[in-house]
Amino acid sequence: MNFAQVLNGIALGSLLMILSSGLAMIYGLRGVTNFAHGALYMAGAYVAYSVSTHINFWAALIAAPVVLAVLGAVLELVFFRRMQHRNHIEVGLVTFGAAMVIERVIVLIWGERTLSVDAPSGLGGTTSILGTDYPTYRLLIIGIALALAIGLVQWIRRSDVGLHIRAASHDVETSGILGINVDRVSLIVVCLGAALAGLSGALAAPYVSVYPAMGISILITVLIVVVIGGAGSIGGAMVAGMALGIIQTLGSVWIPSLSVLVPYVALVVVLLWRPTGLAGKRV
């Protein structure tokens, strides 16, 4: 086992961490399992492609989350808010349909071919870390993810909005009675969750390339991460995302044929042993 592979695991884990925190947030507040989350990730990657080819990559890192926040607002206003009293599985299935629509529209706009995005100049080479030469761009991914993780957790724990989010995630009705504008908080959370998905896609673009099946391929993994991490727990999803990224990458080096099964086995074990996930009900 060499250090580069561990770092690869951490890089993948970082992407999963950002992506899954967004999904966990949406689930925690609206109770919705957002099956469109993979499509949002994919949209972020494609937006990053366009913006980085026309302007530059840094602009893409800003544009993707912004565009996705708008898309998130659409999801919240058109679907989640209207269906908030419906059965949660039905809303989940609606997002399933939305995913199919979003993914097809993306291909209609950008085509079927795999697109590549170059890492920003200056980060295209390698850096020496603990004796190993490692692609600098991936270190950026890791760095951004960690900074984001810390920032997000602090914001949720310390800020007023964060308090409202935690309260509403815990008990929607009581929060409403206590004067928290649940609709406004939901809008913030869904936009933020979608933006995080977009950011994750943008960061992933130079690393994994941009292709039509990328939404579906990441969807099941991120769903599993969030369920394992604990129903709606952002911290839990982050930890589970990082863990799964590392385990899967290292596993694919050591026992390739069986390592793909790791997320599925992990999910089954967790769901059967602790149906509310590892972090339980804590945000």
Binding site: T33, H88, I224, P256, V260, Y264, V268, L272, P275
Partner: peptide, 30 residues
């Protein structure tokens, strides 16, 4: 035997995971 005690989204995820595990197995080199 494994899934029937779950319900709702947990059941959905369990059946999805088990079904996809079989899919993954079928496309492996082994």
């Amino acid at each position: 035997l494994l899934v029937v005690r779950s319900s709702g989204m947990g059941f959905l995820m369990l059946t999805l995971a088990l079904g996809q595990a079989l899919y993954q197995l079928s496309i492996q080199r082994v």
